[in-house]
């Protein structure tokens, strides 16, 4: 399972939107392989008829009113690295 190739690393890093330089691909390939070898032991556990656990509190359908705090909006806009007026500026994606 943990035969992770350099190409896999390249592909996954791109999906994760992280640029890697050549030497790093090798380093991450080695690190990930050893971590994946370690977690391999889970295959020894019989999990037939075991439900997946995605939360521990048992709380369900907790909702609140979807209200915007306008003061906070202003505070949040102050953090934007590139903006025009009250708009966030993003690089062009269509030519």
């Amino acid at each position: 399972m943990s035969n992770i190739s350099k190409k896999d690393i390249q592909h996954i890093a791109k999906l994760a939107r992280i640029e890697l330089i050549d030497k790093e691909e090798e380093k991450f390939q080695k690190d990930l392989s050893s971590i994946l070898d370690f977690v391999e032991k889970l295959n020894k556990v019989n999990t037939d008829n075991v439900d997946r656990l995605s939360q521990v509190t048992g709380l369900e359908n907790i909702v609140r009113e979807d209200k915007v705090n306008s003061k906070e909006k202003y505070e949040l806009l102050k953090q934007v690295p590139n903006k025009k007026g009250k708009y966030i500026k993003v690089p062009k994606i269509l030519e």
């Binding site: 399972m1 977690v39 889970l42 295959n43 556990v45 999990t47 075991v50 439900d51 997946r52 656990l53 995605s54």
Partner: peptide, 12 residues
């Protein structure tokens, strides 16, 4: 193989 399996063992 990884994530769902881990969630099951988490339950155990």
């Amino acid at each position: 193989a990884y994530y769902a399996k881990a969630q099951k063992v988490r339950n155990l």
